[in-house]
Design a protein around this nucleic acid. Structure first.
Lengths: 223, 223
DNA sequence: TTAAAAATTTGATTTATATCAATGAAGCTG
DNA sequence: CAGCTTCATTGATATAAATCAAATTTTTAA
């Protein structure tokens, strides 16, 4: 049978492998281990709903997590797909405000749940932790800036061109429906935009995949 | 004549009054004073353009600064009005990327320009500085989240209702045109939305000002 | 391999808001 | 205070993308 100490050692090692905590001392890691909990989720499960509050800080360890808001017509507005290892919704914690979006697992996954008040008191002042937190926050600012640029400043075809420019050839596995959601378009509009870009000769259409023929041409369309 | 030392003392005192630096030691403040520059701007002047790069960190000390992007039809998308004292575009610095938006003075004003590489090296690790930076970053995340909520999830009338709910009675001084810009609407659409809300009996129209008659009713319209 | 289900495409229509145009009201200036 | 200028409102039209509907293609699974 595994003793408590072995569990602790396992958790400490796990924590040490997370960028945010990689520079913490052994003592700190042990303390941290005592305020965290590992939780598993199935595909489709909700980590938290927009508008609810929590004093837990979440770190995504496995799986893909979708962050989205819901508009007036019950459409999803996808803000972000989180991939491991990411801090999730740290902003809500830092400001003690409700979650600004809903977080739903897109695959099976697991998260590390941290008692935020204790974390804030005992770890937030640590220079490496705060530096990593700053990096994470600025990364998120970049995502949101990008969403604003894409969805507010560009029309449908430009958005698709930008997506193609930034993501390269479309791999077969990526469903059109998902691309449409990411770009904030309906599948119909996405399809029509692909067609326009194809007619311009910027991409070619081989079966269901696209090959980019003129990457600079794509860039022209959105900048 | 004022000696260099007196200038230094003045600058140190000025710096000490800025939240970000209020907890720095005298030595640190003197060092900081050596890497900052105070610059004045006139109404309408541009602090920086979207897409340009700089190794300066800016802190707005006086005046109002407008941050905006430009869309394909040359329309402004206002992201934020900065009021003193605010960090401006720290994200661009932290990630060494181009400014995501243009910053234009809306009044006369002044900024503190900090040599970012030295600042990062010598001050970013300071717990109070990084803590304040985190607060500033999360504040900006909130703004961007709010822009996304408002502009992507709400229709015109809901946006206006939200604006009224959050900003109370419209003061005469606030130009309709400016409200329209903040909400990402044309003045015509804003006018029609005001009218709808007036017909619903939620606001009343006295001359050019509006009085809110039913604040909860307004909330219904956007949530 | 084939039938059923799901995804994509295409076309027709609707919708919300922008744009264009004109009028009316308010504020400013000489 | 008259006339000019700017701002706000109102109406008519245009436009981009959503929605609705149907056909076609791809995927899945029996």
């Amino acid at each position: 049978m595994v003793s408590t100490n072995q569990f602790e050692t396992l958790m400490v090692n796990r924590l040490k492998s997370i960028f945010l905590f990689s520079h913490l001392s052994e003592t700190d890691l042990i303390h941290l281990a005592s305020i965290v909990k590992l939780r598993s989720f199935n595909n489709g499960e909700i980590l938290f709903y927009e508008g609810t509050q929590s004093d837990k800080l979440y770190i995504l360890l496995d799986g893909i997590l979708k962050g989205y808001k819901t508009d007036m017509k019950e459409n999803e507005i996808v803000l972000h797909y989180f991939y491991p290892v990411s801090l999730v919704a740290e902003m809500a914690n830092l400001h003690h405000i409700p979650f600004p979006a809903t977080a739903e697992f897109q695959t099976d996954g697991s998260i590390l749940e941290i008692d935020y008040p204790i974390f804030e008191r005992d770890f937030l002042k640590n220079p490496t932790v705060s530096f990593e937190l700053i990096k994470s926050l600025t990364q998120k600012l970049k995502y949101l800036e990008d969403i604003i640029t894409t969805r507010l400043a560009l029309d449908a075809t430009s958005r698709v061109a930008k997506f193609l420019y930034e993501n390269g050839d479309i791999s077969d596995s990526t469903k059109r429906h998902k691309i449409a959601t990411i770009l904030g378009l309906t599948p119909e509009t996405l399809s029509r935009s692909f067609k326009k870009i194809k007619i311009l000769g910027l991409i070619s259409d081989e079966g269901k995949n696209f090959t980019i023929l003129n990457r600079e041409g794509l860039k022209e369309l959105f900048s």
